[in-house]
Design a protein around this nucleic acid. Sequence first.
DNA 1: TTAGGGTTAG
Length: 850
Amino acid sequence: MLLMPMKLSHPLQKSQMQLPSVKTWEYILSNCRKKRSLAYALRLNTYSGMCGVLANNYIGSLLVSLLVEVGCTETAQHVFDRLADANDCAWNALIIGYARALETERTFILYKKMQALTLQTSTYAYVALLKICSRMKDMDRGHQMHSDVVDRGLGQDPFVGSTLIGMYAECGFLEKAKNVFDKLPTKDAVAWSTLIAANVKNGNEEEALNLLAKMQMQGVIPTAAALVCALKACGCLGDSKKGQEIHADIARLGLLAIDTDIGNSIVYMYATLGMLAIAQEVFAALDVRDRFSCTALMTGYTEHGHSEDALALFDCMQLETISQDAVTFICALTACRNLQDSEKTQEIHVEVARRGFIHKDVNVGNVLVDAYTACGWLAKAVEVFESLPVRDVVSWTVLISGFTKCNEGERALQKFERMEQEGIVPNSHTYVCALQACGSIEEEEQGQVFHAEISRKGLLDSDVFIRNAVVGMYANCGLFAKARELFDQFKIHDTVFWNILISGYLKHNCNMQVLDSFREMQNENTKPNSVTYTYVLKGCALLGAVWDGQRVHSDIARVGLTEDFDIGNTLVDMYCIWGLLPEALQVFKLLPERDAVSWTTIIAGYVRNGYMEDALDSFDQMLNEWFSPSAMTFACVLKACSVLALKGRGQGIHTGICIYYPLELDSVVRNALIDMYARCGLLKDAERVFVQLPVKEAASWNALIAGYSQTGKNDQMLCLLDQMIKSEQYPDVISFIGILTACTHMGLVEQGILFFRAMSEDYGILGNLEHLTCVVDLFGRAGQLSNGMLLIQKMPRHPNLVTFHTLLSSSRREGNMDLGLELFVHAIEVDEGNTGTYVTLFNIYVGAGD
DNA sequence: TTAGGGTTAG
């Protein structure tokens, strides 16, 4: 009666009134193992308890094995506990069950008990035990297992052997893996494949390819796994020739049809090698295009500058309902990161959140944080980061790197501190980012602490990135002696290493050292690249080293780098800085392609050299050619409007910025707007922009001060100065130009002198020639010519033409012919060809004649 | 029972 609803098969039904015999049980249980029916196994378990068959150790042990096989390890454990004396099979089965469920500790406790009872561990159980060591990368236990296996006489078993090779490879002990392989009496295809995989896994791709050749020479037919690994090795090595050979072999032997992994691996290999056309061709010919082949192709696109295509393929997958998993989303987000596409990032963010990937896979969260920081959207990146259930060292590194890239070095270092407090150990990637943060904010003390830590951990010599980052940190902090000392310690100086040193010199305006290092680099026979050339050109530009700059220009032409975007733009900039506009224009016109930076450079060049109309014309042309102006472009054209006092044009540009580029309204643009409005006399508009500033920098105050000063609103200027000081924003070099100019216009000689003194005494600012000239003007306009002359004679700096002209004009106004003549002689000494000097002297005589 | 595919940070 009890058995009727259970619908068991006939041997049991026949003998309903009797308890089944041991033989019958054995038959039923083995039948059930063949069927692997969970429901059937559980019913048998219930029934066995009721009919007392567990008193029989053999049958009980069989039931344990059955329950493990259908995945009910816990139930198997219950049966096992009720057995008086479970046999080896039951023990082995339980070990396998726990190992499969990744219950490491329970597995090993059971194993130890089993050994204490001197029961025989099966090869199956050893394979399971070794796999768990491999999975946990537990080398200590793995090693123990290896010696137990040998003691047990299973050292030459092919299954155990291959598993041992895999275990050592997973733990990073390639030599030990090879030893196991060498000791195997018969090396089957799986053993070869495992050793090939072991080499690929441990970065020994060349050996992997050698092994494939050896395997074939010994007449062992490569398995799909071996071919997949070999293709991966070709991709890693960048060996397209070997890759194509293997591809041809696979095609010839018709292996593509036997295994989809092979086709996918071919796509991946070509994608990694950047041979995207062939990758696409193989992909198109695949019988099945699944998420693996699609993601493989997407990887190729993102790694070789075609992130748009990666996203297009990603969208295609959705249209064709090809399943997508976490890895697919990681690839798509990498593409978003490369393209700095905040909209698509957000779209994918919604999708990965909906599907729970952010919580299931830390890598998805990591790449999402990275994508948001690349878009400059730090708030969003932090929001994702804080919401992550688990944060690994990559999560922290991405965040630290993001802060540094967004010029938030200090916050980057705060995150580093928090990371350590949370017990995450930084690796070399993390240190590189932290050192960059130190360099960016010139936090030399912390940088030195990191340097010491890195040395202590032995990371300094292990990694070229670390080496570069440490030297870069010192160079960026301006600690050149230290940077140079370390630089010299490392014997190999590649181009990147030189560039790091040179960029530090450039950042700190040590332009002579830029040129010296460039020469030294060439003496060492290290070839400069486009990055080196841009640094050196900038150094020449700032140094006014025309001869050197032109020589570097011809070197660049000789090595055929004139078509490089960055170099072309830097050349234009260099000639503009020197005031050689025809040369700048010639380079600009010959650029094979122009970008927004090229246009901005030429516009800035016009502004710098006083060609304001040309600057505005170029701006119109830039817009006509559909280039997007940057904050820098707007700052330049607003300056042009400001100098030309083009109210309407300036207002038009302001409107345009607000409509089309709201994000461009950064502090540089806002300050330029204040300057433009102030100089055009639209002080109300200038004040409106000023009031709206979230942070008022010295430049913002200066723009308004200069505006008030130039339009004669001197009282307002003094009032603003007062506010500036109260807001704890101290006036700087430029502020004092505005202040002194205002005093000159107001004829406030005493007040002006007081400000001039306060500049050095109260604010510690060393006045330059421009300030001194302002004071000369202050005296001159107030009719105090002799004071002006006295100042000129006692100046700590050599006066220039402007200084002499300033007092010469005052002499004309005052009709002081003697002083005028004296100043004329000085002015001629400075520049005898300046017509202005002669005109002013002429006017003095004309005035005297009247 | 053993081996193999697409993934993130400097």
